[in-house]
Amino acid sequence: MSNVNALVKNVGLPRIIIAMFLLLMFCAGPFFGIPTDTSVDDVLVRFGMNGVLVLSMIPMIQSGCGLNFGVPVGVVAGALGAVLSLELNLTGPLGILVAIIFGLFFGAVFGFGYGLILNRVKGDEMIIATYVGFSMTYFMCMMWISLPFQNPSSLTGYGGEGLRVTISVQDYWGGQLSELLKIPISSHLVIPTGMLLFFALMCFLMWGFFKTKVGTAITAVGSNPEFARASGISVDKMRLISVVVSTMVAAVGIIVYEQSFGFIQLYDAPRAFAFPSVAAILLGGASINKANITNVIVGTILFQGMLTLTPAVINSAIQIDASEMVRIIVSNGMIVYALTRKAR
């Protein structure tokens, strides 16, 4: 019995409940006409698509800036990179590479400004991050309309103005990572090896980053800023670095998402990425001031698994589309739970 208690304590009750639920859904799927390989395929693809975005939470949580509700700042940076790559008419591996390079560049620039703001509002980072993210989204909406983009496949047709709401990247660099080294298992299950490997690479880089001198200093700043200051570390500088890194990784994350999805989503769309990424890492066991790569992997699998499987199974079982509701309740419930937990 004490073993069970220890297990529950180590793994955490929310994770156990969600994992059991997922397992149930996996088993129930075939009875409602959803083959297991389809389920596995869905979860794998969604995991690969969202993993890097969730990974981008780590630096800011570790440096004590809290949950990065300002993910949209990185998302628009990535989208800008993607659009620019299209503008240069680049296709294939070069296309996605250039998109990522541009994305990293704008991620760094936007992240720098975002970080400067967050350094001035210590203690209120989360609400301000949320609003900075939303403001940035609408600022970029104006940019999507007014910047002089030329590529006809990005532009609105029929005499409209500015970029399309969704731009297809199929003819450019869609699936460049997902299709790479893909392993077809069955007609419904294809392992997107390239995308998963890319996620693994990003995880490795993140792990390595926190092994460096700077990464160690960032962890200390998040753990106890006074301690770090007494050790001669510039707290503001470390926080700034963490915000820039978070934003840059988010920019890469959205490009990974787009190449798998096949479309670049502009305008209001970046808003939608703020809360799910936060919820995923919390579901993985992170708290407001501590997160690691295991949290990212576990959280993304559980969260995306729940989002893909639950609606599919419920839908075919009782003909109700509950996906939106499940997403709202679970993701926001998870965040409220984390916010009301006693810090330290």
């Binding site: 809360f275 509701m325 709202i328 309740i329 926001n332 419930g333 965040i335 409220v336 916010l339």
Partner: peptide
Amino acid sequence: IFGLFMSG
């Protein structure tokens, strides 16, 4: 966030 949660 609690408002969003309750809207679910």
